[in-house]
């Protein structure tokens, strides 16, 4: 059995562990809530983080294109770029998956040496995902700076138009 197929079959269990580990980054009271509340709108952080993890996982098993992985990373990182996460903390979630995979697939890895080679390849690709994550994180931080500037302009945009200046051209 190929690793991809195995990952596809074990998706629910692996994703659950990954998600649990990610929620564990929050204080215990908050982590409990993130795990408990299932409503998409009453628990938006858990919902969007989960969507992001699912997307990244799908990309890893080859179900979605590599281009889409940045969008999936953005689901997670747009939240963590404004919450209390340093850049390294914000990106560590990608690496959480490595020990989870080794633990979850321990039996199969022992039985089939070929799988280990595939796993090493997958781990390398995970490193690549993390590197893309730095781009996404930085884009979000840059977006915040841009918003500060555009908001300053918006506060006086009426005045600018009054004196014949198009705020969009500034």
């Amino acid at each position: 059995m190929t690793l991809k197929r195995l990952l596809s079959e074990r998706r629910a269990a692996i994703l659950e562990k990954w998600r649990d580990r990610v929620f564990g980054c929050y204080p215990p009271e908050t982590a409990g809530f993130l795990r408990r509340e299932a409503d998409h709108f009453s628990n938006p952080v858990a919902y969007r983080l989960t969507e992001g993890l699912k997307g990244i996982y799908a990309a890893l098993v080859g179900e979605s294109s590599a281009e889409q992985v940045s969008a999936h990373l953005d689901e997670v990182l747009r939240i963590w770029a404004v919450q209390d996460f340093t850049p390294s903390q914000a990106l560590a979630f990608v690496f959480f998956l490595k020990p989870i995979l080794r633990e979850e697939l321990a039996g199969e890895l022992k039985a089939d040496a070929a799988l280990t080679a595939e796993l090493l390849d997958l781990e390398s690709r995970l490193d690549g995902v993390a590197l893309l994550g730095f781009d996404v994180y930085m884009q979000r931080r840059e977006k915040l700076s841009e918003l500060k500037v555009s908001e300053m302009k918006a506060r006086i945009s009426g005045l600018l138009r009054r004196v014949g200046v198009d705020p969009a051209t500034l």
Partner: peptide
């Protein structure tokens, strides 16, 4: 190494609320 980084537990310790003091991080 990335693996070591991933082994770090980011779960903040469970402490009484009176002991946890706010972190005045710029932007907040």
């Amino acid at each position: 190494k990335p693996e070591e980084l991933a082994r770090v537990s980011y779960q903040p310790p469970a402490r009484g609320w009176m002991e946890v003091k706010p972190d005045f991080r710029p932007g907040t």
